[in-house]
Amino acid sequence: MFLINCPFCGERDQSEFSSGGEAHIVRPKQPTELSDDQWAEFLFMRKNIKGVQFERWNHSHGCRKWFNVVRDTSNDKIHSVYKMGEKPPVK
């Protein structure tokens, strides 16, 4: 159980949060103009890497805000957290 430093509330237990999968996947602005393959790429394709991963997390049992987390999936170390809309840190 790790500790997550919510950018709005501070450090809290993981049990207060829920994970939202890979970060920085933007919903296409004009979905109707996409081919099946392009839409499938957005809809289904997610990375699941061993190592440093950019993820979305939600403080669901707290402030209910979504934010981004940079986490190393091999040891659960969280390198940084940042708000939605902020630029991701360079690896």
């Binding site: 939202g20 933007v26 939600n58 669901s60 209910r64 979504w66 939605m84 809309g85």
Partner: peptide
């Protein structure tokens, strides 16, 4: 509610 909040905060701020 969670899904609607997600869209509001991340896709349509």
């Amino acid at each position: 509610l969670g899904k609607l909040e997600d869209y509001l905060q991340t896709e349509w701020p």
